[in-house]
Amino acid sequence: MLDSAFSVFSQGRNFARIVEGLWVTLEISAVSVLLSLILGLIAGLIMTAKETLGATAIRLYFELIRFTPILVLLYLFYYSLSRAWGINLDAKVVAILVFTLWGTAEMADLVRGAVTSISVHQRESGLALGLNESQINHYIVIPLAVRRLIPGVINLTTRMIKTTPYIFFINVPELIKVGQQVVELTGFKNKLASFWVYGFIFFIYFMVCFPISRYSSYLEKKWGG
């Protein structure tokens, strides 16, 4: 049984292709998370700054995005952009665009949560000590908010990685797509190919996400309370 596993992964470039698929997955996740962090931070701060009409509009818009399945967003962008508006974007670019849109909405919500969770008496204590507004932000609000934010941000990274399989549907060669191609190539001769390949990919996802989510909960425990 084990030699059938060996033959699947040693045949041709099968193993190398799976590694390439992993790279595509990680690349798209990393770029999307990075863009989401920057844009989400800005959007989150706008939302917490003042109760203006603009802030409410951004919030409603993000709520709508967070309620919509990501695969639906991906399809809407992928097919509508090319068919209705004649814009032809590379599938990878569409993926990063949609993941960033979603990630920004999630990040903005994390920022809002972190900032509003800082209790009023922290700010009032600062005032009582004679700190001015920018000193309060610099010494009290930002350090506290960042600590509350970081575990959620790390968590968002694993969520992003677990979201990337959706790009299978728009034919980006990420892990599962590559796995499917490998199975199609070897499955004819090797009956157990799909078991080994999908089992291996299952394990890869776990090995990537588990340490990250562990670290996130470690930080949450360390800084929590």
Binding site: T158, I161, K162, T163, T164, P165, Y166, F168, L175, I176, G179, Q180, V183, K191, L192, S194, F195, V197, Y198, G199, I201, F202, Y205, F206, C209, F210, S213
Partner: peptide
């Protein structure tokens, strides 16, 4: 369950498990 995507879980159930 929490550290793997649903899609690979489904692929495993649907395409891999029947083989073994």
């Amino acid at each position: 369950a929490r550290n793997t995507p649903l899609m690979i879980q489904l692929f495993f159930l649907y395409y891999a498990l029947p083989k073994v």
